[in-house]
Nucleic acid binder design. Structure first.
Length: 578
DNA sequence: TTAGGGTTAG
């Protein structure tokens, strides 16, 4: 590079040029310097003053400046230089990373980087971090690959900032393996790099890999900090993570993070999510200091384990201790699991009253949760009231209401709402269709409760009596719309349709749907097998049962129940094979 | 300049 008219290719040359530079910047010559050169000068000088590495591939420590009068002189000079041009220096530093500010798009920014690379100009870490940040925002994988290529060409792949940002972008784009590749190539890894890799695995539900990296970090002498612990605990917050989570707990206690509120909160969360709600409570109770998030985690954990009443007590207690519940508190306490238990309606109403008083009744997410839990706890009227009172509704609101009506035996109203929703321009999503599938099933169960023999014709007659559209026609209509919306390839929608066709007695439609599915899971196979079994197609059900296992699917209890029903009517020979 | 605890529908 050229600095103040001198060719600068090394640290010592930069030192030499400082004097000339300071004069140029300090004098009337400021305007004669190109802005990019000024930017370069400022960042480099600033980094000299900080005593950090500033030359690609060169490890410059603070101590490099001390020990010799010459270096000390240069250091002082740089500091004088920085203070003399403080105003300019700050401007330059604010614009650090905004070097590409003239580029309005990612491709423009990349073109600039490529141009610099082509011209042999220095591209520093700020510039790469800037362009990578743009890729991060837009989840633009194609651009990331291009930038990665430039990084390799300019030999910046070992820069900890650049490598870290690159890893983060890959992780965000779902390319954890690519992030791992960057990580593995890093000769020297800092705590950010370790933490990013662990966090990446946590984000993608890969606890075993996260633990592997965490253990490697410790073996190589890396010292986890509070953020590392937050990341590894997040990875372990699942049933298989419990055994590792307990080990991490011990490390945290020995490592002096006992009073760190976020780390302790993450521990509570890890225990709650991995199924050990007792340990979660133990950690929670032992905490000397808590914040709203801590309370939310504990309340949510209890609610998700079905302890609605306990969650509600804690909800009251947090307020007695002076904490103000936020929208997350309401979302955490109002979970379906907690609210489907007997007697839940009472405290759900109480939570609702609190929410109104605190002004959260205008929060769409809180209202959605209320619609859902009122339906779950059996009060579709309350659900309807909340739904009707909402000023804004999204697809979740509609799906919650439709599903709620369906589950509470208001199938016709659910379907009308489904049509109304589309008239109002709201596009149904997978869940909406799933809710409609539930409607068919709940109606089926209702008929069974009413003593209807599961004969397809009788079944359809009763459906016709309760829904003017007619069950099969209705199912076909939903199916048509799902195809139109491109949602029929979704395995959950496909499963619901197979299920619905079976329940309406149209086994051929069910089979057609089943055969056409690109992706199947154990639910698909079970729905089809049980449909065939219930429609007196025992032989077909059995051969499908064998086929599913040949294709590597493991039958679940419901699959066996269906196939055993077949055996009672077709002979015992099959039982031995099962 | 780089890592970050909790969040509603199915």
């Amino acid at each position: 590079m050229w600095l103040a008219g001198m060719a600068v290719n090394s640290t010592s040359q930069l030192f030499k040029s400082l004097l000339v530079t300071s004069e140029l910047i300090d004098g009337q010559n400021r305007g004669r310097l190109a802005s990019s050169s000024l930017y370069d000068i400022c960042t480099r000088i600033h980094r000299i003053s900080l005593g950090t590495s500033f030359w690609p591939g060169e490890q410059l420590q603070h101590s490099s400046f001390s020990g010799s009068a010459k270096h000390e002189k240069h250091r002082n000079l740089s500091l004088v230089c920085v203070s003399n041009m403080r105003e300019f220096d700050q401007t330059a530093l604010v614009s650090a990373g905004k070097y590409l500010q003239n580029a309005s798009t990612i491709s423009e920014a990349i073109s600039l980087v490529k141009k610099h690379l082509h011209q042999g100009s220095t591209i520093d870490s700020y510039m790469y971090v800037d362009v990578l940040q743009r890729c991060f925002k837009h989840k633009d994988l194609t651009s990331v690959k291009q930038v990665h290529d430039c990084i390799l060409k300019s030999g910046m792949d070992q820069n900890p900032y650049v490598a870290n940002k690159l890893m983060r972008v890959y992780i965000r784009c779902g390319k954890v393996q690519d992030a791992r590749h960057v990580f593995d190539k890093l000769v020297k890894k800092n705590v950010f790099n370790w933490t990013t890799m662990i966090g990446g695995y946590a984000e993608h539900g890969r606890p075993a890999d996260a633990i592997e990296v965490y253990n490697q970090m410790r073996q190589e002498g890396g010292r986890p900090n509070e953020v590392t612990y937050l990341s590894i605990l997040k990875a372990c917050a699942c049933p298989v993570g419990l055994k590792w989570g307990k080990e991490i707990h011990a490390h945290i206690s020995h490592g002096g993070f006992r009073s760190d509120v976020p780390v302790q909160t993450a521990l509570v969360n890890m225990y709650a999510k991995s199924g050990s709600i007792k340990d979660a409570r133990l950690v929670f109770d032992e905490m000397a200091e808590r914040n709203v998030i801590t309370w939310n985690v504990m309340i949510g954990g209890l609610a998700q384990h079905g302890f609605g009443q306990e969650a509600f007590s804690l909800f009251l207690q947090m307020q007695e201790e002076g904490f103000v519940p936020d929208s997350t508190t309401y979302l955490s306490i109002l979970t379906a699991t907690a609210c489907s238990s007997a007697g839940a309606l009472g405290w759900v109403k109480e939570v609702h009253r609190h929410a109104v008083k605190a002004g959260f009744d205008s929060d769409m997410r809180v209202c959605n949760a209320l619609v859902h839990v009122y339906s779950k706890s059996g009060s579709v009227d309350d659900a309807r009231l909340v739904f009707e009172g909402m000023l804004d509704r999204d697809v979740i609101s509609w799906s919650a209401m439709i599903g709620g009506l369906a589950q509470n035996g208001c199938g016709h109203e659910a379907f009308s709402l489904f049509l109304k929703m589309q008239r109002e321009g709201v596009i149904p999503n997978v869940t909406t269709y799933h809710g409609c599938g539930q409607e068919a099933f709940s109606l089926f169960l209702r008929m069974r409760r009413e003593g209807v023999v599961p004969d397809a014709i009788t079944y359809m007659s009763i459906l016709n009596a309760s829904a003017s559209t007619g069950a099969l026609g209705w199912v076909k209509e939903v199916h048509r719309q799902a195809v139109q919306a491109g949602l029929d390839s979704d395995v959950r929608v496909g499963n619901a349709l197979v299920h619905m066709y079976c329940k309406t007695g149209s086994i051929s439609d069910a089979r057609l749907m089943f055969d056409g599915m690109v992706e199947r899971d154990v639910i698909t196979w079970t729905a089809m097998i049980s449909g065939l079994a219930q429609n007196e197609c025992g032989q077909e059900a059995f051969s499908l049962f064998l086929q599913m296992q040949r294709e590597g699917f493991i039958p679940v209890a419901t699959t066996y129940a269906s196939i055993l029903n077949v055996c009672t009517s077709t002979g015992l020979a099959m039982v031995e094979e099962i």
